[in-house]
Design a protein around this nucleic acid. Structure first.
Lengths: 173, 173
DNA sequence: CTGTTTTCTTAACAATTGTTATTTTATCCC
DNA sequence: GGGATAAAATAACAATTGTTAAGAAAACAG
């Protein structure tokens, strides 16, 4: 069962945001966890005025700054829509309460955390193992949908390079 | 309470390994989780014959290829002692059983997984945010003990560069 | 549809890292 | 301690990426 079907039973409020809407700003604390029905978002950090995208989210994803939500710390990350999005919203209180009382929800969350852990671990490995050019080719092979759907500047920082360098790599391919 | 005190109550077997002992080999499945009493280890992956160190473990750490332990998959990583080590050994069965039945152990594990998640997330951010030279300076500032205790070749791959480049960076500092 | 703004491409040059090989230094083992 | 082995430093050159700037293409708004 997908998280979207699963989460239906919790009767969450649905919201719509246009493209380029910031739903969580770096430096503030997470008050919600979101479930993405339609659209896509990115998570990014500021780095000397330039932003660096660390993750993309597509339909079916659970979206939150987990550190901020779980540790009640200011988020290192900003969450921003790329396309217009339809989201289901769950408050932090409800989230924490469900995590403590609802066994099914707790299991879902543990699994989700583990999956994110794998994701980060693999993503990190990609940086250590391969050079930018190869990382681009790997992304092209494994997630061509990302390259189709996401503006190049975001992909560049996600790959750890500048937009100029990505453009060069693409022609060199 | 540290994990080492906590784990005492489980009466685990203690083992000693000399330096450069492989306790889990890439491609095989994890059968144990270890708790490090003394010494240090590294986790690494093979990359075209060169190894890349992804993590260091010091006294008090829980050591396992979590993906392999939890998903019963072949490990992507090798675990190898750097110094001579004293370890407490817990079998996979015991680990899984405790995780299901022992609330204190389950809580400890959830917390540990979360900490590792943060660790990976921060480590990845370091790659995206900074260049090799700066990563070296950051490591020097935040974890000077690593630079004192760990051979340079391992630190180089941990920083995502070659030993030659690290040597250059160090003199340039 | 058209003008504006943003994104992407291209180019030239600088800076950094990778590669290979050699030398120096440190470590290990008998 | 001394010879063997491994690790680190150094040097020269190649390859890649970063930086800056300018122009082309695409997206957006009225």
């Amino acid at each position: 069962m997908s998280i979207l079907e699963f989460i239906t039973s919790y009767n969450l409020k649905e919201v719509n945001y246009p493209a380029k809407t910031i739903i969580l700003k770096e430096g503030s604390k997470a008050r919600y966890i979101y479930f993405l029905k339609k659209g896509c978002l990115r998570m990014w950090v500021n780095n000397n005025g330039m932003d660096i995208t660390t993750q993309f989210f597509f339909e079916g994803a659970a979206i939150a700054s987990l550190e901020s939500l779980l540790k009640d710390e200011a988020s290192d990350y900003t969450l921003e829509t790329i396309e217009a999005c339809t989201l289901l919203v769950m408050s932090k209180q409800e989230f924490l309460s469900l995590k403590n009382t609802d066994q099914a929800f707790k299991s879902w969350f543990d699994e989700m955390l583990l999956e994110r852990f794998y994701y980060y671990s693999k993503h990190l490995l990609g940086y250590l193992r391969t050079k930018p050019h190869q990382r681009y080719l790997n992304l092209l092979q494994k997630h061509p949908e990302i390259l189709q759907r996401i503006p190049q500047q975001f992909i560049a920082s996600y790959l750890g390079i500048t937009p100029v360098s990505l453009s060069r790599i693409r022609t060199r391919k």
